[in-house]
C-alpha cells in the first residue's frame, strides 16, 4: 500500500496517541516518543510495525507520540493514519483485527 500524502490520526490526550505518517522513498522509518518508552517502547513499536506490515506499508515515515494507549488504540490509530494517507482505501476487516 503506497503512502502518497501526509496524514494524522489520534490525539495527544491521555490513553491515546498521535500518529503522523508521510511518504518516504527509502524503507520504513518509525520514530516513537512515549512516556512509558522504557517499559513498553519495544512492544508499542512491534504493534505498530505489525499493523503496517499487514497493510503492506513498506515505505513511510511514521512518527508516534504515545500517551499510554492500549494495543487496540495503537492499532486503530495506525490503521486510520494509513487509510488517510493512501489514494484508495477499502478496508479488509479480517486483516485489520
Amino acid at each position: 500500500m503506497k503512502i502518497v500524502r501526509e496524514a494524522l490520526a489520534g490525539t495527544l490526550e491521555s490513553s491515546d496517541l498521535l500518529v503522523r505518517i508521510a511518504p518516504l522513498e527509502d524503507g520504513l522509518e518509525l520514530v516513537l516518543k512515549s512516556e512509558v518508552i522504557h517499559q513498553f517502547g519495544p512492544h508499542i513499536e512491534k504493534v505498530a510495525r505489525d499493523c503496517l506490515a499487514r497493510l503492506g506499508v513498506t515505505q513511510a515515515l511514521v512518527v508516534i507520540e504515545d500517551k499510554g494507549a492500549l494495543d487496540c488504540v495503537v492499532a486503530a490509530r495506525v490503521q486510520t493514519a494509513v487509510s488517510r494517507a493512501v489514494d484508495e482505501w477499502t478496508p479488509d476487516w479480517s486483516a485489520l483485527s
Binding site: 490520526a9 488504540v73 486503530a76 490509530r77 486510520t80 485489520l96 483485527s97
Partner: peptide, 14 residues
Amino acid sequence: KDAARMLVFHALRL
C-alpha cells in the same frame, strides 16, 4: 467518523 469506526472495531474485540 473513520477514526471512531476503527477504534470501536478494535474495542469490540477486547
